[in-house]
Amino acid sequence: MKDREYIENMIARFLNGNCNEVELQELKTWTETSPENKKEYISIKDIWDASKTPKENTEEQLSIFYRNLYEKARKSRMLWIRYSSAVAAILLIALAISVLLPQKSTNQTENFQVFSVPLGSRSKVLLADGTSVSLNSGSELKYSSNFSADNRLVELSGEGFFEVKSDKAHPFLVKTKDFNVKVTGTQFNVCAYDENNFTSTTLAEGKIELQIDGSNQNFEIVPGEKFELDRKTRKYTLGNADIESEIAWKDGEFIFRNIPFPDLLQRLERWYDVKLNYSDAGLQKFNFTGRFKNQETIWQVLDALKLTSPIDYRKTTFREFTIIYKPLKQN
């Protein structure tokens, strides 16, 4: 039998040093010799384990936790888009069939089809007349179940890029809360979110006619122009547009040129389905220019902003961040 001190030192060596195979075997044999030995070994190791000071930072781990959760949700949402576009395709086939089938039209019982895109997602709808509509995050496209090549009327809330199948005899009509757009064949973007201060349309190709709701003002818009209506004052502007950055979203890109900070936040919120808060009015005077691809996470975007401008950010709760203004030190 080895003496007591020998065993004690061996346990200390095992916990915080190097034991060779022979010593390990000796230790194991000792623990198996009696229940007391086993109990002592386990309780000494337990104290040893409990007194460790790990280098972990709980707050950092908490934010890693939410980041992982966010990545996971994003992946499943992308899957959802795939499912939803499959569903949309089926719906549209059904719609096409119902258009082909002769039907008695009873206008009193008109039904509507609604196609809505959740926040943080984008989607594309192909309508029965061959027109395609890309819908941005949080948008809704509503059309009558009578929609056909002869009856081309849709209602939009949110943002959509239309590629309208040309048909001079049957104009395509887009209704928004603030104005109606009438086209024959063309490509244009309409941005009409309920929570925005402005409703706008930008023309890429063709020709559009615009009529402001509740007035008989009509406008003709030519390619490269953007019409913007202030929803409160009802004042409008018509001018040259930056087409590329206006419609980049439909290809999963986010381009912004010289836009004010509040606008940037609003667009990021919608794009990523997050809430971004700020309290410092000093931030409002900044304008931002940049370009992001769909692949970036909100963390990467915020990190990029943090690197290039005097801001910092903090995660407050799930899908919510606070932006902090950090003025640069004057030298």
Binding site: N9, I11, G17
Partner: peptide, 20 residues
Amino acid sequence: PLRTVETRIFRALSTLKEKM
């Protein structure tokens, strides 16, 4: 000496154990 370190570690742990 290394032996002293080992002895102290074990003693520290068993004193802690008694306290707990």
